[in-house]
Design a protein around this nucleic acid. Structure first.
Lengths: 202, 202
DNA sequence: CATTTTTGCTAACGAACGTTTGCTTAAATT
DNA sequence: AATTTAAGCAAACGTTCGTTAGCAAAAATG
């Protein structure tokens, strides 16, 4: 059976820290806040963690991994640009809704990291954005997306709008991640595609 | 001539506080940080301000005013929905680029306000969003925008993408606010409009 | 020029911060 | 049952926080 309690506490701490960091920010959350949320004394956390920044790092690092590892196979697949974009949007929204706190912290609190770790996260954020740009670029070169798109700019618009979902999404709200993905894809795609007569009637 | 220095110092403090709050966040910026940036001692600021939160409030309140007062006349004008949306996007981006720090602080640091002030800001933020929704709704009812748009959702996407510009925009960068507005409007509008043959040649 | 007001300094306040220490209890291992 | 290991507490460390008090220089006002 191995051990039961060991590591569980640590995961609880990480989960609670993620929630508080996402709600109040890194500097707005104290070690004692995190401890109190699981009915511990502040100092007791240090039996499980090395430092407050380590907590932030683990949350942000895990989010970076989640984003990158979900997008890479899509970009590398042999699908069409349109299909790639559709999947990429869905994948991004999957991470954003399934790991909401980590996504918010990843997007808003990376500045609180040490310079070395901040640089690491920024590099991976850039790599992610570059993968997204690749899809748009490919679509342009394949002639399915309009050639006059400002790819870096539009990519940023898309990613910003998608990341914003992490801030307002509520699992018990009226919209499922799939519905959000569909509405977003549907709307975004129209802005990208070259003008063609509609395929369906209506 | 009235007084020369009076009020200047205060405005300087507000400007510097806005910059630091936007770069490091409210909790990540200390009174001594702000003071040091204008070569003063921490305590000296209190000859000009009542509290740190007052600084945050003035920045956020001013931004709220700027956003609302720039959008209201557009929504109330007799223009077409398409023209209203174009102007609204341009106005939003004008505020966001011209008062960049305040816009970032308005979007990211309002949580640090006292409950009463936070509620005030949230109400005005909601009012702003409602004005934006009105434009989309009007466009649907006029038959120029697609009827199947999820208006609250798309409005959120648009505003989030626009607010994101406040984070990455650089006045000395390659893109002017006007270029950003044009690319954005151009792209967004295609996702909203009902399919029609283009009116203009080219 | 005298005086009031503004501006800034130094020093300190009490509170909260992240973190460490030493001790105790509980759990797991032999 | 004895012993090692893990988990948590209470208290304190040194630092930084927002803010205040008392005093000095500078500027504006009469």
């Amino acid at each position: 059976m191995a051990r039961r309690t060991h590591g569980d506490r640590r995961k609880t701490i990480l989960r609670v820290a993620g929630r508080l960091f996402s709600q109040r920010g890194y500097y707005g959350t104290s070690i004692r806040d995190i401890a109190a949320a699981i009915r511990l004394q502040g100092g007791s956390l240090y039996a499980h963690i090395a430092s407050k920044e380590e907590l932030l790092w683990e949350i942000v690092d895990e989010a970076a991994q989640a984003f990158l590892s979900s997008l890479e196979p899509i970009v590398r697949s042999g699908r069409s640009p349109v299909e790639k974009l559709r999947l990429a949007v869905a994948a991004h929204l999957w991470v954003v809704t399934e790991r909401q706190d980590a996504a918010v912290v990843f997007n808003h609190e990376w500045k609180a990291l040490s310079p070395r770790r901040r640089a690491d996260i920024l590099a991976r954020r850039d790599a992610y954005e570059a993968l997204f740009r690749e899809i748009l670029q490919e679509g342009i070169e394949a002639g399915v997306f309009r050639a006059d798109l400002n790819v870096p700019l539009i990519t940023r618009f898309i990613l910003t709008a998608l990341n914003g979902v992490a801030v307002w999404y509520r699992p018990k709200g009226p919209l499922s991640p799939e519905q959000i993905a569909e509405a977003f894809t549907d709307w975004v795609m129209r802005g990208l595609r070259r003008c063609e007569p509609p395929e369906t009637s209506g």
